[in-house]
Design a protein around this nucleic acid. Structure first.
Length: 248
DNA sequence: GGTTATGTTATTTC
DNA sequence: AGAAATAACATAAC
C-alpha cells in the first residue's frame, strides 16, 4: 500500500503513539540498531512522498512499504515481522518493507517542496524539473519521485485521465499550460485519494485505474504497460489527447 | 503454475 | 565515467 496519501493515512493512524517511549524493538531488519531506538520517545511523525518517518529524541526510523509492505497497529499479520515497535500503550508492526535508520538532520536529506502532499509543495519548481526532462513520456515523468514525491501508479492514471492527456505524450510536446494543470491535478488527486482513505471509500475512488470502461464515453479502456518504466497504464484512446511534436 | 500488482535499489552492461 | 538496461527483493490474488 505505497502511494503518498496512504502513507499520510498511516501517519494519522499512528500518531496515537506520539509522546510514548519505545519499550521494545524487534523484527528481522538489520538496518536498525534496536538498542538505540529502545527507550526513545516518539516525538513526531512525518511523511515524505511514500516514506514515513518516525522521529525520536535522538534519531529517526524511516519505513518504506515498497510494493508489498503491510502494517498493523495493535495487532499482527501472519508473516515475518520486519520491524516491530512496542510502545507503552500498544504496538506498531511492519512487514515486507524497507527500514532505515537516520541520524542526519532531516532538512539536509529531504526537500519537502517536491512532496505533492506537503504544504510547502512548489508547483513552479516541479514544472521546471519536468521541463528539464523534455524527452520523457509524461507517464514516466509523473512517477519520478524527484519531481513529484508521493505520486504512484494509481494517482498517475487518474491525473492523466482527468487532464484528458494521453499517457504516452512526450513532455516537450505538451503545452506548458497543460503541464501546469497536470501538476495541479497531481496535488488534487493525491488529496482526494487521502480523503477516500479517511472515508474508507477507496474502492469507489478510481475512475480509470484498474477499471475497464471509460466513464466519459463508455468505451473500453486501454490497459498496457507503457513508458520506460513499463507500468500499467489505463487510458481512453478517444478522450485522452496524444500530443505530437510541433512542426513547421 | 503462470501472471500480475499501489515500488525502489543494486548490479550489470554498453 | 556514466547512462541505460536488467536483476533483485518482497507477497498475495486471480
Amino acid at each position: 500500500m505505497p502511494e503518498g496519501p496512504q502513507m499520510v493515512f498511516v501517519k494519522e493512524q499512528t500518531e496515537q503513539f506520539i509522546g510514548q517511549v519505545v519499550l521494545e524493538v524487534k523484527g528481522k531488519t538489520r538496518n536498525i540498531p534496536f538498542d538505540l531506538v529502545k527507550g526513545q520517545e516518539l516525538t513526531q511523525i512525518k511523511t515524505f512522498g511514500k516514506e514515513i518517518l518516525f522521529c525520536f529524541q535522538e534519531n529517526v526510523v524511516r519505513v518504506h512499504l515498497m510494493f508489498f509492505g503491510k502494517y498493523a497497529i495493535n495487532g499482527e499479520v501472519n508473516r515475518p515481522l520486519e520491524l516491530g515497535l512496542s510502545f507503552e500503550d500498544g504496538d506498531l508492526n511492519f512487514y515486507a518493507c524497507d527500514c532505515r535508520y537516520l541520524q542526519e538532520p532531516l532538512e539536509r536529506m529531504y526537500d519537502w517542496s517536491t512532496d505533492v502532499l506537503s504544504e510547502s509543495f512548489d508547483q513552479e519548481k516541479a514544472l521546471q524539473k519536468l521541463m528539464r526532462q523534455p524527452t520523457q513520456l509524461i507517464c514516466d515523468a509523473l512517477l519520478d519521485q524527484n519531481i513529484l514525491a508521493g505520486v504512484g501508479n494509481g494517482i498517475k492514471n487518474e491525473v492523466l485521465f482527468r487532464a484528458r492527456l494521453h499517457p504516452e505524450s512526450q513532455v516537450d510536446h505538451i503545452p506548458e499550460a497543460i503541464l501546469r494543470s497536470i501538476i495541479q491535478e497531481c496535488v488534487t488527486q493525491s488529496f482526494r485519494y487521502l480523503d477516500s482513505k479517511r472515508e474508507g471509500t477507496v474502492k469507489e475512488h478510481w475512475l480509470v485505474y484498474q477499471q475497464k470502461e471509460c466513464p466519459r464515453d463508455h468505451l473500453p479502456l486501454r490497459k498496457e504497460k507503457i513508458g520506460k518504466g513499463q507500468r500499467s497504464g489505463y487510458f481512453c484512446e478517444k478522450c485522452q489527447v496524444l500530443f505530437h511534436p510541433v512542426t513547421g
